[in-house]
Design a protein around this nucleic acid. Structure first.
Lengths: 115, 115
DNA sequence: TCAATACTTAGCCACATGACTAACCAACTA
DNA sequence: TAGTTGGTTAGTCATGTGGCTAAGTATTGA
């Protein structure tokens, strides 16, 4: 279960791989098209692609000698969800602290007003 | 610039570190409190904490012999923003494809209707 | 059919990462 | 003040990751 997030975040931790995602967000592309802007050997680049495919972020089909890649949104949405969830918990806690702080300051006011 | 995302995603790629975030989302805690549920040596755990601190996701203050940690939302929000941005591009592209598909099917209807 | 194209496989190397133990320091507490 | 608690530093080790070259396979176009 957490394994999904492990490999997703791991995949996104590399700038080359994030660049591939950014490129693929605007439409499918072949391996060499994706490789072109990156100054590294093709086999090295292919291994980055493999990481993305293994994680399920990218899918590809080979037709003839060309492999075309496209993006798969599900893992991206899941990770975004996890982050949103954490943020929600964190922010609701801040709200509670805020409420508590107000409560305390109100009590204080009562005390100073009363006698 | 992208370096920020690099280290953030790298930090989140480990289940121990994500568990720490999940714990800290519901309030600050000391190192030993954070360590307790994890079956690993303290120095090992401390290095996970260091990764989180270096990335700016966690801050800590030492008072006496106790170090108390709390979460810092900014990097979390930034990463969420990046994911949302990618998703937006991807979805708007799907919308455009959709519109294009409709346009084509309309043209087809016109053609079949006309003669 | 032959050469170019588009990957693919195999194998190597350097450095990063995650885990451990052992020993240490500093601050409470009895 | 002596022991305990809470954290820290140092050093070792195995595995993972990102990079390379060299050589191989399968399509495609001339």
């Amino acid at each position: 279960m957490t394994n999904q997030l492990d490999s997703f975040f791991g995949a996104m931790a590399d700038p080359t791989r994030r660049a591939v995602i950014e490129r693929l967000a605007s439409g499918p592309a072949s391996v060499s098209e994706l490789h072109a802007p990156h100054a590294m050997a093709l086999p090295t680049f292919m291994r980055h692609l493999k990481v993305l495919e293994d994680t399920g972020i990218v899918r590809s089909i080979k037709k003839g000698r060309v492999r075309t890649c496209h993006i798969e949104a599900a893992p991206l949405i899941e990770a975004q969800g996890w982050l949103a969830w954490q943020r929600e918990i964190w922010e609701s806690r801040l709200d509670r602290l805020d409420a508590l702080a107000q409560q305390i300051s109100n009590t204080k006011e009562d005390q100073t007003d009363a006698p």
